[in-house]
Design a protein around this nucleic acid. Sequence first.
DNA 1: ATGAAAGCGCTAACAG
DNA 2: CTGTTAGCGCTTTCAT
Lengths: 335, 335
Amino acid sequence: MDMRDIAKIAGVSSATVSRVINGSNLVRPATAEHVRKVIEETNFVPNGSATTLKYGKSSTYGLIIPDITNPFFPEFIHCFEGILVEKNRDMLMATTDFHVSKIQQTIRRMLVRQVDGVALLAAEIETGPIEALLHNRVPLVTMDRRMVSRGLSDVSIDFASGMREAVKHLKRLRHRKIAYIGGSAGLTISDHRVEAFKQAMVEAGLKVNPAYVRVGDYRITGGEAGMAELLGLKDPPTAVMAVNDLTAIGALRLMHRQGVGVPDDISVVGFDDIALSDIMYPPLTTIRLPRQELAEVFFKALDAFRKDPHAAGIQYVVSTSLVIRDSTGPLRPRS
Amino acid sequence: MDMRDIAKIAGVSSATVSRVINGSNLVRPATAEHVRKVIEETNFVPNGSATTLKYGKSSTYGLIIPDITNPFFPEFIHCFEGILVEKNRDMLMATTDFHVSKIQQTIRRMLVRQVDGVALLAAEIETGPIEALLHNRVPLVTMDRRMVSRGLSDVSIDFASGMREAVKHLKRLRHRKIAYIGGSAGLTISDHRVEAFKQAMVEAGLKVNPAYVRVGDYRITGGEAGMAELLGLKDPPTAVMAVNDLTAIGALRLMHRQGVGVPDDISVVGFDDIALSDIMYPPLTTIRLPRQELAEVFFKALDAFRKDPHAAGIQYVVSTSLVIRDSTGPLRPRS
DNA sequence: ATGAAAGCGCTAACAG
DNA sequence: CTGTTAGCGCTTTCAT
């Protein structure tokens, strides 16, 4: 069943059917109405691949995320998908599982599918795949790489402002020995975040103890391991900030197992504000990264390339803010 | 850049390029090698929409889930996506957010994209959309609807066996007053599950107190509400089984807030075994629904329609098993 | 306001 | 083994 069939039934040409479907005003209302009825009756659905072939655009965006198991990403996907549906666009999703190699093939698949743009929320990217994209005139929007160029925009997270708030909050609670459990080594996104932490500490007039700065992996296990290292120190910190909520939850779990009280013995601050952070015990104080806004900015960034996929890139910023719950409390001398 | 361009550069015809790309053995190795080199050098990526148009198949499956916020689904998606990537297929994902109306448009979008099949893990489906799919010769695989027909297979969860194990486990712990917090009313999947609970009780020689059977919504809030109702009873149950882990976690939270000890006062059993259930406190005893296997069965079911999208449907079954953790314990008289 | 026809890029039958 | 060609379903000038 194609447009010609509909045309035949309606006694018009396929061009008219096409015009009706696309809401052209070059069709006499009565004709349009009639064609619409035939379409309705036959349950006709146009073939998108023909349109894509003709247009060279698919109304589809690719979305690449590192780890769908981190609740932050489903929450983001939820917002992003909502926007796409509203704008009548589709989403091709892929997961990297933190493997650089997977990105290559993922991007290839997206090129084959003629996506109109790619949102890359995974940090493990190399220049090769990026060039493949730009070479094929497919715009790319990255997260927190802080580099833009033709066809390449970036959405950076203002980690610093949230960090600053959090450090201030901890300082007010009389904490001085503040530790940080970060992300995997070697990712620019991890670097930006440690730097933001260090800077916030300096600005608050606190000094950064290198032993207090640990590396994690953005997952619960990394939080546990980092926390174990911190607890093993002869002079452990009294507060811990984590690169994301999962890491914070890992730290929480480890302390729970070891009988360390939160926030009585050690305060914890997460990052992201995933739904989970509110159902944990204790509910997690965390730096909120607004998902809806992030999704909107990603869409806006992608959409900005619609007329010209090779237009100059734009650096967007999404800000963060501290959400105080129960995992942070005043400093108390450890027994 | 299309195959003709490659052909021109390589000094062959576009048919040969096509054959090389598709690994036909009707090409002289030397020619193939040469063409491959040109493809490599030019970073050529074929246009999938042309292939889809030609074939009428897109190597894409649609996946419809109710709620990406329930960790069970990301975990499922992760497994499913892994299988698809391996088989060189793509995934078009959509969320219903429990709205029947969204299914309609979602299915339409999938029809437009020429998906080769749809995996429907959302229960809120009506016959209309199903017929739209089958009418367009797109096979559908549902979860726990327990109906099959031409082009329609079903994967049912053997809720009963896990249920039976769980009830036995609770009985062994001397529980008699066992409650159940179910899913949203009016979904066949919810019905199957309550029935399995009731049957398991009967088989264990326990009687089902109607006041102990509550309705939830598959989310944390439903678990909280259901649990609140149960605690409000003059004679509350000593054990609670939930339709899924999120519901169980809701129950857990409410009890935590009200100072009810788990498992000392009340035992709790979940269903799904999401990763979260192991990091909760207390770690949740739950009936495990194996995600990898579920994903494999869905793929198999979809793939079975490859030659003939209108072939007879098959009823598949995925079994479940009890995972005992710390949220269940021996009955103790309440103080 | 409507129709005829070319062409998007790929594949497969057919011819050689 | 390789090339020629028709056609998948849609959109869009160009004609009328």
